[in-house]
């Protein structure tokens, strides 16, 4: 605790869509400590997705610096970014994004395949991750044989199996009913409390934002508020 996992300073991101120039992020500075659970809110087009892409090392800022675990990752090449994603970042998407032809277990093993983890160790760790989300009995099921909530739990297991420094969740409950959403948020809460994983959650539902410790609001590519969440 205490040392910041993420330090963003003076971050800009500009897109050129034909003749039009879109400033998706304007001078964003943000520091996130280890173990924090942050909710990022904002209307669509406010820049929160762009922020997620940059935090997730899928995209690079136009200017400004991004330090992850003290390393400046804003200027790394594609393969180096892939290595960062593999070792330090876990993604949970709104659409689950599991590989449909692979079983739950194989989906969870995927990040370790690219890390060249030996297959015995790989399977052991994948089982452990599935157990932590309560799906060990579904390890040989295909995504199509599981409910949305179960699929998202597999996705969470995949995201945490490499013990990432940062877990990014982009509208993770957008496709789920409210009861299941509660379950999923419970898992996130537990990951934060028990395992101390740093979590950034993008949502536009204030109800869900309340599971977080801190809330950052975006509008027009800028941070307009950054405050602790009131635990009512």
């Amino acid at each position: 605790m205490g040392s910041p996992v993420i330090v963003l300073s003076g971050l800009h991101k500009t897109y050129h869509l034909g003749e039009v120039t879109v400033e998706a992020l304007r001078n964003v500075s943000l520091s996130i400590d280890r173990g924090e659970f942050i909710a990022v809110m904002g209307a669509s087009g406010s820049g929160k997705s762009t922020l997620m892409n940059i935090l997730g090392c899928l995209d690079r800022p136009t200017s400004g610096t991004y330090r992850l675990d003290g390393e400046d990752v804003g200027s790394l090449g594609r393969d180096a970014l892939a290595a960062i994603r593999r070792r330090k970042i876990g993604f949970v998407f709104q659409g689950f994004n599991l590989l449909s032809r692979m079983t739950a277990l194989e989906n969870v093993e995927l990040p370790m395949i690219y890390e060249d983890v030996a297959s015995g160790v790989r399977m052991e760790r994948a089982r452990e991750a599935l157990r932590s989300v309560g799906l060990l009995d579904r390890e040989h099921h295909l995504p199509s044989q599981m409910s949305g909530g179960q699929q998202q739990r597999v996705a969470i297991a995949r995201a945490v199996v490499n013990a990432p420094s940062l877990l990014l969740a982009d509208e993770p409950t957008g496709n789920l009913d409210s009861a299941t959403s509660g379950d999923i948020m419970g898992i996130f809460r537990e990951l934060s409390d028990v395992r101390g994983i740093t979590l950034v959650l993008v949502t536009h539902e204030p109800d869900l934002a309340r599971y977080a410790n801190r809330m950052v609001r975006f509008r027009d590519g800028r941070i307009i508020s950054d405050e602790p969440v009131n635990k009512a």
Binding site: G56, L58, R78, D79, A82, A83, R85, R86, R87, F91, N97, L98, L99, L110, P111, Y114, E115, R158, N162
Partner: peptide
Amino acid sequence: TREIGIRMAVGARERD
């Protein structure tokens, strides 16, 4: 394409 995107997100390099 989507599968490729997923693989890249979990850390596949270009050469993978």
